[in-house]
Design a protein around this nucleic acid. Structure first.
Lengths: 179, 179
DNA sequence: ACTCACATGTAAAGAGTTACATGATTTT
DNA sequence: AAAATCATGTAACTCTTTACATGTGAGT
């Protein structure tokens, strides 16, 4: 399941442009699958070249043509085949945790900064989830609700753990002097 | 913070070979930072070329020379500079959640399989964490304990959420027929 | 007899991120 | 007057993954 496939899935909800899909990635998929324009536009071009989506160009004044994509029956088949995979991955890549592993080489200040910034990022995710639930909750399929629920459960668990155990960690950080 | 830097950090704990570091990645770092031989060996070669680690070659019979790496003062400086970054990332890339988003396009059987496999993987992580705590708990720095604690909190939160909400999701999956 | 652990490395392929390139309209 | 939104795309770069390549010794 790569960016192409996720784009295909998003298009089952209705036609959209690359720009629209980017918004969708940011608002609902961002916490577990991110993609920038540099991934999305080539993905759509590739899907179109393989007949998995159709593209309708809508001329505009000043701006580039708006290209609206819609999924084809062949695209739907490819998507369903992808959804049939029994073991989709769930991977974490955390420079945050890698940093924490070496907390004993950091000063208490450095550690506090890293921990506080993580909490701040978690809280911005909380706001994102709240926003999603207040605006899009009704129009989206149940699977989306589930992923938002998991996202929230995950960040709350992390926040709680940091708040309950962070101070203990700071007691073991290095002194300010870097000998 | 890339594979190179994590290797550098691991070497602050004592000298090790690429093979040893791979073990370390699997047993303690795997849940938030994975790396294979194809990343580790080139990383060590690059660190050695830049004088951040020293390499001692130990001839062996039959097997390739065992190359034992140790961190240099310059390497330590580079590591400390890396640990000074205030906003280390924490990224999730989940084909699992991406699949769940489109649960309404899957059969109840497909969905159950995906959910069960995820639970099974979570349980194998639980065992890994137990093993770590029973064997390496004492020798590792406090930061490691913290990361294992977060890892456990995260997978438990996910497991709980799936167990409490998974059946509700299955009520909304597609019928077996793919029209 | 077979498989697992030990032990290192290269090369090609695959995927994503970042920076660049352009420019009108709408909101603050 | 500045900033954000709309709107698309390419090219270079970075990084990881996978497959290949080789071979011994110990345990089951």
């Amino acid at each position: 399941m790569d960016v192409k496939t996720v784009c295909l899935g998003m298009l089952t909800d209705g036609e959209a442009s690359g720009y629209d899909l980017k918004k969708h990635f940011e608002s609902s998929f961002g916490h577990f699958f991110s993609a920038g324009y540099g991934s999305i536009y080539p993905a759509l071009a590739s899907l179109a070249a393989n007949g998995l989506v159709n593209c309708e160009c809508i001329p505009q004044n000043g701006k580039p043509d708006r290209k609206v994509y819609s999924i084809t029956p062949a695209g739907r088949d490819v998507l369903l085949a992808e959804l049939d995979k029994p073991n989709p991955s769930h991977k974490v890549r955390s420079e945050f945790l890698a940093t924490i592993c070496f907390a004993h080489l950091m000063t208490a200040d450095q550690l506090a900064t890293v921990l506080n910034n993580r909490i701040a990022e978690i809280e911005s995710y909380e706001k994102l989830f709240d926003k999603f639930e207040h605006t899009r909750m009704h129009e989206t399929p149940h699977g989306m609700h589930f992923t938002v629920g998991i996202g929230r459960a995950l960040i709350l668990a992390m926040k709680k753990y940091i708040q309950e155990n962070g101070h203990e960690l700071q007691g073991h950080s290095a002194a300010a002097a870097n000998f």
